[in-house]
Design a protein around this nucleic acid. Structure first.
Length: 586
RNA sequence: GCCCUCGUAGCGCAAUUGGACAGCGCAUCAGACUUCUAAUCUGGCGGUUGUGAGUUCGAGUCUCACCGGGGGCACCA
């Protein structure tokens, strides 16, 4: 929003500095921190330091201050600026608050749900996330992946990319066979329950693994089952198809509860075959070494690249010829680019697989795929339990997603019921859901990708302080003011009276939203937006307690109503990027 | 052994990517509801940014070394 002003000012500053004998000055503008008024500033330290380097004997901070005040006094400002001043080597320019505030609010109310979005980049980006295994349960570790992947997708889309949300489902492998064997032998004919489907499927999986581990006979039986599967035994294939669908339906339940959707589904089963032929071609090209039957099929990346203990060795195929993750991930990557002509391919996968993905990308590069460097591993840290206990369904150290959602909704319902007893049960439930899911998502997104999240029930379900309900509540407050006016927002008009500091701070935060989106998108960090949304809500609550809206005088009242509407919109937009909905009442 | 990552107030986290006095939330103490919803707000307490050096006008941020936590490194996913 400031861009046009910046260039005008820069032209003037260049002339002023030239008189001082400074030829090449580059200005870096930033916003002035903590200010009753707001504006932009630039520092003169770099310019002064350059002078010092060119031989002049000067004290840099002193010279910077001198240049700043020189510019401050020589600058001619348009009436959109209120004043300028030199402070400690910085040149601060303050905007004429009324005209600027009006501009910001007008823009939000004009662009509505698009406010904050950035122009189209014409970049096609695929974000692969979630990647669940069928026949297993969802736990909070998986939740972090989903929430992060969905938020990153939203942010990229909002900042102008064309985004394809992809899911890659692990529908084959030993875990599936183990499940099928157990089901056929001990649960034949049973159907999944209507609710908590993944929990049921997951509990059968845990039981199956237990049986496999506790008896050699069972292990042998499962191995035989695997062989029968490999030989396309029609009964097993039919059972696989049926039970796989249960898993997929269960996943859909969860995705829809979380408001997550995918544009493209990939299955391990669909890339396994081409994976094996791809490995053959790698062997033929002399890149991969076939050490079967004694050893596996490997690619010694360090040997090929001349690096030392950096890329290590990647195993492409087991010694018995069965496939591994790598067997399938390589053809999948190719498929993605062939099908969609991507500019970027982002993998949302936990940090423990950093080396693995680095190897995959390198193999693709060695195979001559020029797009290999457009693959990016978005690594995030895992979710732990207190005492550095890793989540593992086998150990029983796991928090199941469906249990978590249920408990959170229950707690949210208690508060909703207490605050709004008169509402219909159905509406209360819908509100409770928004709050519960919002809280859980927010608590995961408000930690940086590189930080481990330690899950404990108490803090996961805590809705106080910096949490989603605080932000949702701010929007609800704004909404209830607007409701009293039947949601009629006055037309834009000039402001003649002095604005309150709280109003200006609120306007400032609202105006910052587009650049926060840009930053979050560049860094692939939803945390940026999560923090922003909180700051915005805080500023609104501050405004709310200090600036009465409905009881204010004509012009002030109109402006404040518009400001309230703009705030509500910006909160909705920012939380929306995080996949968090805002209720009308709470 | 090699590589990655984290270390900021009692606890949980930020910090405009090298800028102005290091911020916020829990917790704790003291206040504010006949006024647009108190899931709110105001104030107090709390810091040698793991340690030591270096680069720079300027370092939580960059470099190096060390200390401590976590993770990865050939047939698991």
């Amino acid at each position: 929003m400031f861009e046009t002003y910046k260039t005008q000012i820069e032209e003037q500053l260049t002339v002023i500095l030239q008189k001082e004998g400074i030829q090449s000055a580059v200005f870096q503008w930033s916003e002035i921190p903590f200010s009753g008024h707001w504006g932009i500033s630039t520092s003169f330290f770099q310019i002064a330091a350059q002078e010092a380097k060119s031989g002049k004997k000067i004290n840099v901070p002193q010279r910077a201050a001198e240049l700043a005040s020189l510019c401050a006094s020589a600058l001619k400002l348009s009436e959109d600026f209120e004043k300028c001043e030199a402070v400690k080597g910085y040149l601060n320019l303050y905007f004429q608050t009324q005209s600027f505030s009006r501009m910001v609010v007008d823009r939000v109310l004009e662009e509505k749900t698009n406010y904050g979005s950035l122009p189209a980049t014409h970049q096609k980006v695929m974000v692969e996330f979630s990647q669940p295994n069928t026949h297993k349960a969802f736990h909070v570790g998986h939740l972090r992946n989903m929430v992060l992947g969905a938020a990153v997708s939203n942010i990229l889309e909002f900042s102008g990319d064309e985004v394809i949300r992809a899911n890659y489902l692990g529908d084959i492998g030993l875990h599936v066979i183990t499940w099928l064997w157990n089901y056929e032998k001990f649960h034949a004919g049973e159907k999944p329950p209507a609710e908590k489907m993944t929990n049921w499927i997951g509990s059968l999986y845990a039981e199956a693994v237990k049986r496999r581990e506790e008896s050699k006979d069972n292990e042998e039986a499962i191995r035989n089952y695997f062989r029968a599967w490999d030989a396309h035994d029609p009964e097993i294939v039919a059972l696989w198809k049926e039970t796989r669908q249960w898993s997929l339906d269960a996943f859909d339940q969860i995705y829809s509860a979380l408001g997550i959707h995918f544009d493209k589904l990939y299955f391990e089963s669909e890339v396994e075959h081409e994976g094996k032929t791809f490995v053959e071609s790698l062997i033929q090209k002399g890149l991969a070494k076939d050490e079967r039957p004694q050893g596996a099929v490997i690619i010694d990346l360090d040997a090929i690249l001349g690096t030392k203990e950096e890329y290590r060795v990647l195993v492409l195929l087991r010694s018995d010829g069965t496939s591994l993750y790598a067997t399938k991930d390589i053809p999948l990557a190719i498929k993605k680019f062939d099908e969609f002509h991507l500019n970027r391919s982002i993998y949302v996968v936990d940090v423990r697989q950093s080396l693995y993905l680095k190897q995959i990308f390198k193999v693709l590069e060695l195979m001559g795929y020029t797009w290999a460097n457009q693959c990016y591993h978005l690594a995030y840290e895992i979710v732990n339990l207190p005492g550095n206990v890793t989540l593992a369904s086998r150990e029983g150290t796991v928090v199941l997603l469906e249990d978590l959602l249920q408990e959170a909704e229950k707690r949210a319902m208690l508060v909703v019921d207490q605050k709004n007893p008169e509402l219909d049960l159905e509406i209360k439930q819908r509100i409770a859901k928004m709050i519960a899911i919002g809280s859980i998502k927010y608590s995961l997104l408000t930690r940086d990708n590189t930080r481990i999240v330690t899950f404990d029930w108490e803090s996961a379900l805590d809705v106080n302080g910096q949490a989603a309900p605080y932000i949702q509540y701010a929007a609800v407050r704004a909404n209830s003011i607007l409701r009293k006016e039947n949601f009629c927002v006055p037309e834009s008009m000039g402001i003649t009276s002095e604005l309150e500091a709280k109003e200006i701070e609120l306007v400032d935060l609202i105006s910052r939203f587009p650049q926060e989106v840009g930053k979050a998108s560049r860094e692939l960090r939803p945390l940026q937006v999560a923090n922003y949304a909180y700051e915005l809500a805080k500023a609104f609550n501050d405004f709310y307690t200090n600036c009465p809206v409905l009881s204010a005088e004509n012009e002030v009242r109109s402006f404040r109503l518009r400001l309230v509407a703009a705030t509500k919109q910006t909160i909705i937009n920012s939380l929306g990027l995080l996949g968090i909905e805002v209720p009308e009442i709470m």
